[in-house]
Amino acid sequence: MNAFKQPAAAAGDVMLDIKGATMRFGGLVAVNDVSLQVCKGQVYGLLGPNGAGKSTLFNLVTGVLVPTAGRIEFARQDVSKLALHRRSALGMARTFQIVRVFHGMSVLDNVLMGFHHTLIDGLLPSMFMAGRVLRRERQLREEGMALLAFVGLAQRAEEMVEHLPHGQLRLLEIARALASGPNLLLLDEPAAGLNDQETRNLGQLLRKLNAQGLSIVLVEHNIDFMMGLCHRLAVLDHGSKIAEGTPQQIQVDENVIEAYLGRRASHA
């Protein structure tokens, strides 16, 4: 079932710590007092029916939204209110539910965007250190090509992103996220819009990354995909966490069965 050994999740290895996160939009409580911990080396899945608050929680973690209450800690640092552009330097990288690549740029240049936070910031400093910028640029191209080769897009490096099909754009987004050198990779529905073969390849890619020590948090609808990939899962319903555990535990959890099957029985 789960091909991985359970990571040695000592309490000191907590990478992402969500403490009572709550998000209200007016009268609507989209995320209600959710707490969970993601440990180093884990693949952690967020499951739940539509409208359960998964995406909102994901947006809280990635910093697109600021929680109404509660804290989000990353590497023992409170990041609840940290500006979006300061997060990649901490080692957080993400992909988007709807692919967001930069049009008008080549595939390689899109990947190189991922290195941005490691480079000299600003126009004047870069110009004063032109030599260093150019040398670094050469290294970046090599590193970027290596990442493209890793996700299997090396032969398309010089093409404009507009020419890539959806499945390859997903891989490009992951390569771009990897370029930022993350400790934690946050994936928002990475399998959405992929066919079976592409989904299997994606699963293999993520396993390979995890085997190299990368922690992954993912939100996904595809339950089979999640069961085969995640070490640990949390299930949300109506904004609250209703269950958490290993895939085996989740599969037999009564709250989960009710949330999914009960709903299906009454609505479908």
């Binding site: 697109v64 979006l84 008008g104 190189l112 965007m113 991922g114 941005h116 000299i120």
Partner: peptide
């Protein structure tokens, strides 16, 4: 032809994506 140009081009596209990659938009 360097990261500066890429940062600039990312502004005309998707600002959220640019920010999440560390670009101070």
């Amino acid at each position: 032809s360097t990261h500066m140009g890429r940062a600039l081009m990312s502004l005309r596209g998707d600002e959220t994506a640019a920010q999440s990659l560390g670009v101070n938009v």
